[in-house]
Design a protein around this nucleic acid. Structure first.
Lengths: 343, 343
DNA sequence: TAATTTGGCTAAATCGATTTAGTTTTCGTT
DNA sequence: AACGAAAACTAAATCGATTTAGCCAAATTA
C-alpha cells in the first residue's frame, strides 16, 4: 500500500525515470518520446494511482505551489469569508494555502512567518497585526512575493489591497448626520492599525465638514480582545446618564466591536435607533437579524480575495518582469442602509 | 540574500554537515561532539540566520509536520472558531495546518484530499461533506492518521469527535415543550449528514416522549446553500396562514439556517417569541444581539479542537502502538437559555 | 562512403536535510 | 609496547522528483 513513485513506474516499464518524468509533465513530444511509450507511461501511472510527491518536487524546483496566508482573526467572519475566497481562488490555480491566525499578536505573528519561511512557501498574503512592521520589513527583504490585505504600513513599500476607509467612514458618518444625529461617537480598535486610523479620520472629516468639532472624548480606542469588558466600559462612559444621553449615535469600526457594543446597549435598556443610532463596518450575519437590523459598511470581500491572489500569482509567474511592482489597490465599500439609524 | 543551508554552516566552519546536523538537532552530546564545536555551530547558525528547510527535512524523514484540515464551510463562524482552535493547538506542537473549505461539495473535497496527499501531510482532521464516504474509505486505506469532526460515517471505522446531537436536540425540544409550545417544527440540512439525522432524531424522540406524534410536514430538510431561497420557502410553508399559524416554534439544526430563518420570520412581521419560539444549534454572535436573543445549543468548540489534535498527534507519535485505535468521542452540549422561547 | 542529422532514450547531478557505517586519533590498561 | 576502547568526527547513501548533458542507432545528406 506504499505510494507509487516515478521510479516504480519506470521499473515496471523498463524505462528510465527521466522518460517517465518527461511524459507525465506533458513534455513527451518536446523530448521526442514515441507515442507508444507515452501511452504506456500514462496508462500505468493511472493504473498504479501515481500521485507526484510535491515535497520532492518542491525541493528540486524550489517552488512549493503553496501560499502562506496569515489573517488577523479567523474567528471573525469577515476574515473567515475572506479566507474562503482566497483559498478558492488559489486552488483554481493549483496553489495550496497554509493558514495561520495571528490573533493580532505580533510575537505569534513573527513565529508564524518563520514557520512559513521554513515551509518554503512561494508567496504570502497577510493582514499584518499591530507592531509587526519589523517582521514585514524583514520579509520584504527576503524578496518573496507578498500582498498585504486589509491594512498596510505607509512606510513600507509593498503590494497591498485595502478599501477606502476614509471614504467609507465619511459616508457612514454623513449618513448619521443627515438623519439628524449630532452627538456621534466612534468606537474603534488600536489606532496603530492604519485602517482603523483612517476610519476615525473619515469620521472626523465628516463631522468638521458639517460644522461639528470632533470631541476626543467621543472616540474610544480599544485594544484587541476576544471579550467584552473594554467595550462595555467604553459604552457606559459614552452613554453617561441614561435620562440625558451624551451620545445619539455610534460608529463601530469593526463588527466585533459592534456586536459586543449592541449587546451592551440592549442590556442597558436603550433602544436602537430611538435612543442611539448605530452604524458598523462589515456586513456580518448578526447585523441582519439584529434588534433593528444594522446599517453597515460592506467591504467587497470577493474582490479583495481575488485581487490578492491575482497580484501574487502574477508576481510568481515567469512573466514577472513586465508586471507592475508593488501595486496599491484601494477598493470602494458600499453603505447598506437598514433600520439602525432611524429615518 | 540567499537562504543559509546546513552546508553553508559546515563549510564556513570547516566541518562536515553531518556534524552540523547533529548539533542543531540537539544530539551533540549523544554523538560526542566537543562542547567547543557545538557552541561554534550554534553560534554561526544564529549568526547566519539558519532556518531549516522543512521541505528537505520532509523528503528525507517522510514527516512533514503538517496536518491537512478540511472543514465544511469556513465562512460559517462555527467552523471558523473550530479552525482557530485546531491551528493554535497544532502549532503548539510544531505542526502546520494546510487548510481547505469543502463547501459541502464532495467533488471539491475529493480533489482537496488528493492535493493533501500529494503534499504528504502527516495526518488529517476532517469534517466530511455529504457523499464523501468513498473518499474517506480510500483515505483510511492509506493508513495515514485521520480524525473526523462534527460528523462521521457509521459504516467506516475511524477516529471521530462529535457532540451528542441526539441529546442536544432532545433537550432543546423538551425545553420548548416545557414552555408550552405544541407545534414545533425542525428545519435542518440534508439528512445524509449523520449529525443532522441525529438532531432530527432527538427532536422526534422528545416529541413522542411527550405524547406528540411527529409530523413529517413539520420537518424541512434543505440542501446546503449560501443563499436564503430554500429557507424562505420552508418557513412560508411552515407558517401557513398568518392569522392562524401552523407552527409555534422552530428548532434550527444549524446556525446558518437559523440566521436566515430569523431574518425571514422578522420580514413576515412575526414576533419572536410571541408568535414563534426559536431554538438553534451553535452559539454564534448573531444570536446574542438578535431581536430577542436566541436560545442555543452551544458546542464545546475548544474541546473538540483540542481533542482532535490530541488524538491525531498521539497517532503520529512513536508510542503509537499502545494508543487506543479509532477512538469515538462524544461530547456534551450546553443549552443556553435566552429570550427566544418566551417563558 | 563518410559525415551529419534526427529520433528515442538514459546516466547522473541536483535540491537540503538525515542517518548509517565508518575512520582517525588519543587515552588507559596490562 | 601493544591492544582495545572511547572520543571526535566524516563520507556517502538516501528521500523523489527535475533537468542537463550525452549516448546510440537509423536516416539523411554531401
Amino acid at each position: 500500500m506504499k505510494k507509487t513513485s516515478l521510479n516504480d513506474i519506470a521499473q515496471r516499464l523498463g524505462v528510465s525515470k527521466t522518460l517517465v518524468s518527461f511524459v507525465l509533465n506533458g513534455r513527451g513530444k518536446e523530448f521526442r518520446i514515441s507515442e507508444e511509450i507515452c501511452k504506456k507511461v500514462t496508462d500505468t501511472a493511472k493504473e498504479m494511482n501515481y500521485q507526484p510527491n510535491r515535497i520532492a518536487q518542491g525541493l528540486r524546483t524550489g517552488k512549493t505551489k503553496t501560499i502562506g496566508l496569515v489573517i488577523a482573526d479567523i474567528a471573525n467572519p469577515f476574515f473567515g469569508k475572506l479566507g474562503r475566497e482566497i483559498e478558492q481562488e488559489a486552488s483554481k490555480h493549483g496553489y495550496r494555502i497554509i493558514f495561520c491566525s495571528s490573533d493580532e499578536n505580533a510575537d505569534k505573528f513573527k513565529q508564524q512567518i518563520a514557520m512559513l519561511q521554513q515551509s518554503q512557501v512561494d508567496g504570502y498574503i497577510i493582514s499584518p497585526p499591530i507592531n509587526s512592521e519589523e517582521t514585514i520589513k524583514a520579509l520584504v527583504k527576503s524578496h518573496i512575493p507578498l500582498v498585504l490585505i486589509d491594512r498596510f504600513f505607509p512606510e513600507i513599500d509593498t503590494n497591498h489591497i485595502i478599501v477606502d476607509n476614509l471614504d467609507a467612514a465619511y459616508k457612514a458618518t454623513s449618513h448619521l448626520l443627515k438623519l439628524g444625529r449630532k452627538r456621534i461617537a466612534n468606537i474603534t480598535l488600536n489606532v496603530d492599525l492604519i485602517n482603523m486610523k483612517e476610519r476615525t479620520e473619515g469620521y472626523k472629516n465628516a463631522l468638521t465638514d458639517n460644522g461639528i468639532y470632533p470631541d476626543e472624548a467621543m472616540i474610544k480606542v480599544l485594544p484587541f480582545s476576544h471579550d467584552n469588558t473594554d467595550v462595555n466600559k467604553a459604552i457606559n462612559e459614552l452613554v453617561g446618564d441614561k435620562d440625558n444621553l451624551k451620545v445619539d449615535a455610534i460608529l463601530f469600526s469593526t463588527s466585533k466591536l459592534g456586536v459586543m457594543g449592541i449587546e451592551c446597549i440592549s442590556s442597558l435598556g436603550l433602544k436602537i435607533p430611538d435612543d442611539v443610532a448605530v452604524v458598523s463596518f462589515d456586513n456580518v450575519d448578526a447585523y441582519k437579524i439584529c434588534v433593528s437590523p444594522v446599517t453597515v459598511i460592506a467591504q467587497p470581500l470577493p474582490d479583495i480575495g481575488q485581487k490578492a491572489v491575482e497580484i501574487l500569482l502574477n508576481e510568481l509567474s515567469e512573466a514577472r518582469k513586465n508586471s507592475a511592482k508593488n501595486q496599491k489597490i484601494k477598493l470602494l465599500t458600499e453603505l447598506i442602509v437598514r433600520k439602525s439609524c432611524g429615518s
